[in-house]
């Protein structure tokens, strides 16, 4: 374990971007937990006389059409956005890794069919699929989570399947079987620990994608509804005022979205370097 930490330290020293990304991701999580109690203004209370003020010392990110503080709303939205993304990704990771690893190890006809199905699914316009699902199941937050999880699922299945597949006949798996390990032991003790690092990278990258998807759905008016603060909705509300030059309504929630996705993406790239055992010395 200490070797891993030492290696992580080594990689981070040579790669400060990952360190910054890790710091950013931690900050996001802190904001998600404590954000709503830290904000300077009530994120939902309207104050019409102060409507549509540009950014100032009092309202850092300006105010919206109902006079609500955009800064407070952006901070308060962190919790919901991260929660949606994290739940969706955990759901699809748990289901996808299991299905994928199982199919990849068993191989044969089942594996081939699952593989083909996943390929077809992945090339399908998944965002459209998510829209249709939210429409069918009802316009609620839980359904955004489910829809996002479902459209992430093929990526995990394919990933776990491919990772297990290349290792299925590798020497150490055959050696494990010759050493008397049962199939469950081979998968759990040998294969999964070896593919987890790569999966961690995938999870981090997918978190970013899930945030974008969820925000996209709410931007369209699906799922989360106003006045709940959520980045996609904040952008959607601000969109009406962009042609009249009220840039702050769109820019700040948009930046928040972008930074969140950026953090998780960079973190994923950094994790790839840290967890790759071949690069450890």
């Amino acid at each position: 374990m200490s070797a891993t930490l030492r290696h992580a330290g080594y990689v981070l020293r040579g790669n400060p971007v990952t360190l910054v990304a890790g710091f950013g991701a931690s900050l996001l999580i802190v904001l998600a937990i404590f954000g709503p109690s830290l904000v300077p203004h009530d994120p939902v209370a309207s104050n019409v006389p102060n409507a549509l003020l540009p950014p100032s010392a009092r309202y850092w990110f300006g105010t919206d059409q109902l006079g609500r503080d955009v800064f407070s709303r952006v901070i308060a939205a962190t919790r919901l956005d991260l929660l949606i993304a994290a739940s969706a990704v955990s759901l699809s990771f748990a289901a996808g890794a299991t299905i994928g690893a199982f199919c990849g190890y068993v191989g044969g006809q089942l594996d081939r069919w699952v593989g083909r199905l996943v390929d077809v699914l992945m090339a399908f316009p998944l965002f459209v699929l998510a829209m249709a699902m939210v429409a069918a199941f009802g316009n609620q937050v839980e359904n955004i989570v489910i829809a996002t999880a479902v459209i992430n699922l093929p990526f995990y299945i394919r990933f776990a399947r491919a990772e297990v597949n290349v290792r299925r006949n590798i020497g150490w798996v055959e050696a494990a079987r010759a050493s008397g390990n049962s199939h469950a032991q081979v998968v759990l003790r040998f294969l999964l620990p070896n593919i987890l690092p790569a999966m961690a990278v995938q999870i981090s990258l997918n978190l970013g994608w899930a945030i974008l998807n969820a925000a996209g759905l709410s931007f369209l008016g699906l799922g989360v509804r106003p006045p709940t603060p959520e980045w996609g909705i904040l952008v959607a509300e601000g969109a009406r005022f962009i042609t009249t030059g009220k840039w702050w309504l769109v820019t700040f929630p948009g930046l928040a979205l972008m930074l969140a996705v950026l953090c998780f993406n960079l973190l994923g790239d950094g994790l790839r370097d840290i967890l790759d055992p071949r690069m450890r010395t």
């Binding site: 970013g208 974008l212 925000a215 996209g216 931007f219 996609g232 952008v235 959607a236 601000g238 969109a239 962009i242 042609t243 009249t244 030059g245 840039w247 769109v250 820019t251 929630p253 948009g254 979205l257 972008m258 930074l259 996705v261 950026l262 993406n265 960079l266």
Partner: peptide, 28 residues
Amino acid sequence: TLGVCMPTFVSGLLLIFAFYYLLGWAPD
């Protein structure tokens, strides 16, 4: 790196702001 982080709807709106509102290079 930045491109994959940018939500389409945000970049679209910002482009409108820049090229329609500020510069006037694009029509309504």
